[in-house]
């Protein structure tokens, strides 16, 4: 929830989109919700954001009766589109009370301070966001490797498979599973980093040992 910084172009654009099909911030009558957002906007939105401007002018016409409008003011971040992250109260700290403007008069003195605070929070949020993608996507794969016949040396086959090395590939446990007529297949676990190793690469490298390997299948593929 929230429109972000309502003094920035991005925040106003969010407000504009939000108000495209609504006359008020909440419900169908003017309320304290409108007043709260109105006070945060402070200056008339530019003419190209006509939905925001229309709403701004409309709420302005209630200026004299704003105290008598229904509803209770909430923190700014509680209003607006539900799918937008609230940045106004993101890094809650002891300065949190600054956001609630009880009398609408201390606007001037807090603006400098709150501006700095907001920028700090934005920077914090940005850095948090940039760290997130560092988490690499990994998958656990269970491979079935089938030999040519019952005379294939399974120990040698496993050794061959494990000899395959690639960046982002880790071999796990393995076992031999009987398929019939004394033939056993090798079932082997491995963990890969999705971006670096694909099943195509594994298949290519494993089937390259054509003396031992007849075919290879992916038995299970799980995202971690």
């Amino acid at each position: 929830m929230g429109f972000g910084n309502l003094r920035s172009a991005a925040g106003l654009r969010l407000l504009n989109d939000f108000l495209a099909d609504k006359s008020y911030i909440e419900g169908y009558v003017p309320s304290q919700a409108d007043i709260a957002v109105f006070e945060a906007v402070a200056t008339p939105p530019p003419a190209d954001l006509f939905h925001a401007l229309r709403w701004y002018n409309h709420i302005k016409s209630y200026e004299k009766q704003k105290a008598s409008l229904p509803g209770v003011k909430k923190a700014l971040g509680k209003y607006g589109p539900a799918d937008v992250e609230d940045t106004t109260g993101a890094a809650t700290d002891s300065k949190d009370d600054d956001d609630i403007d009880l009398f609408g008069s201390d606007e001037e003195e807090e603006s400098e301070e709150s501006k700095r605070l907001r920028e700090e929070r934005l920077a914090q949020y940005e850095s948090k966001k940039s760290k997130k993608p560092a988490l690499v996507a990994k998958s656990s794969i269970l491979l079935d490797v089938k030999p040519w016949d019952d005379e294939t040396d399974m120990a040698k086959l496993e050794e061959c498979v494990r000899s395959i090395q690639a960046d982002g590939l880790v071999w796990g446990s393995s076992k031999l599973v009987p398929v019939g007529y004394g033939i056993k297949k090798l079932q082997i676990q491995c963990v890969v980093e999705d971006d670096k190793v694909g099943t195509d690469l594994l298949e290519e490298r494993i089937t390259a040992f054509e003396d031992f390997v007849q075919s290879m299948d992916v038995a299970a593929f799980n995202k971690i």
Partner: peptide, 9 residues
């Protein structure tokens, strides 16, 4: 586009 009611406000 720029009005809430037909007679503006």
């Amino acid at each position: 586009e720029d009005k809430v009611y037909l007679a503006r406000n």
